[in-house]
Every structure is written in C-alpha cells, then in structure tokens.
Amino acid sequence: MNNLIKNIVCRQSFWGYPAARTLFTTPATRVKHIEISQEKDVVTVRGKTVESGREQLLVPQIKECARNGERFCPECSLGLDIKHTDVLILSQYVRSDGCMLPRRVTGLCKRQQKKIGTMVTMAHKAGLMGSLKPANCKKDPEKRYGFKKFNKYFFEDTIKLPRAICKQS
C-alpha cells in the first residue's frame, strides 16, 4: 500500500515534470501534504495544500519579483552579503535534517545556489546549525569526534563560483 502511494505521489507531483512525461491529460497535482484516511473498506488518499507559515514574514521584494517575472536572489535582488555565520538566513534553505534544498525548490540562480549550499556546509562544519541534523547525528558540536570538536571558521572567498551572474537589469 505504502509503495503504491509512493509511486503515485512521486510520479505525479513530487518530482515535478519528469523528462519522459512532458504531456499531461490532467493537471499535475500540486500538493504539500498527503492525507490518508480509512473508513471501513475504503482508503482515501487526498492531497492537501498546507500553508508554510512564512507568508506573513516574507520580504516584499519576493512578490515584486514574482509580479515582474524575475528571479529572486538574496544577493542579486536585495544586495545582501551573506556569511556562513548567518544561520537565521541559511536555515531557511535547508530541510529539517539540515540538507540543502535543490534549486528547483529554492529558486535561486546557479551562482547563489552554489554559494549558499557551500555556506550551509560551512555552517554545519563550524557547528553552528547543530539543531538541524539527522536524528543519529551528534547535535552538540563539542561531542564530535577528533578534530571536528574544535571551533573553526571559514572564508567565503574560498568558494569557487561559476562566472555568470543572475541576468537582471
């Protein structure tokens, strides 16, 4: 049963538009939460859109960019200089286990995706995002093994980036 649901969900919504299937007879299901309820012999699987809770706090430039059909980047659109110690910003781009989200979800340009992805890794190595770790990881950086338990910092200019920047006026 679970496998069946996984197949349905993955094929139709989770992976977006797979290369093998670009033509749809029905609209792609856009879901944020799969609700499974069972009544006697009938199992109902329903996709439900859930609010992320971020709408009220979003910076206004995001909606402005969306209206103009432009890409929103913290550096290209806002001029932010993000460092690897800015955990409040970096933690918005990761999953609950601390893994960087793909570009399809973050909507960044290639350069920013690479830069923020590397800075997320730096923040993890520096032990600044201990609360965003897989369940089997040591959350306290001082309990890590060997040289990893000591404090370290990084230079952002060591990140190797592609030359092209975000195409914007």
Partner: peptide, 21 residues
Amino acid sequence: VIDNFPKIMDYPEDYLPKAIK
C-alpha cells in the same frame, strides 16, 4: 526569534514538506 525573522524563501506550491516513507 527564529520564527519571527524575515523570510527570503518560501516553498513552491508543489513542494512536499516530508518525503513519504
């Protein structure tokens, strides 16, 4: 403080918060 910090990223409409196991 984390919850009330200004957000610069929102999930797209078809984003699934947690992968189905």
